[in-house]
């Protein structure tokens, strides 16, 4: 498990990468490019297909370094379902 300081640092880095990914999604430099990747895939589509794989990789890293380890324990220590009623 990570220390609180190192978790804060890695969360900060992941937030920056997330924002970078959001910017990279706006690939204005590919807008008019009609080049075909592998002879059949328009570049604008190939870029975003690759983007999906990068997004999956990013979330894989997030799961590894920013997983909330204490969440399950907290979830198990609750009140009974009947408490839902009322308010």
């Amino acid at each position: 498990m990570q220390s609180a300081a190192s978790l804060m640092k890695s969360t900060g880095i992941l937030l920056i990468v997330f924002l970078l990914l959001a910017v990279l999604h706006q690939d204005f430099w590919n807008w008019d490019n009609a080049h075909l990747v592998f002879g059949f895939m328009p570049l604008g589509l190939a870029y975003h297909a690759l983007y999906s794989l990068v997004a999956a990789t990013f979330w894989g890293i997030v799961m590894k370094v920013a997983w909330p380890h204490d969440l399950e324990e907290w979830a198990d220590g609750g009140e009974q379902p009947s408490d839902v009623r009322g308010r």
């Binding site: 969440l71 979830a75 609750g78 009140e79 009974q80 379902p81």
Partner: peptide, 8 residues
Amino acid sequence: WSIGKRYG
């Protein structure tokens, strides 16, 4: 999910 489980 965690809140849902904790409080039903």
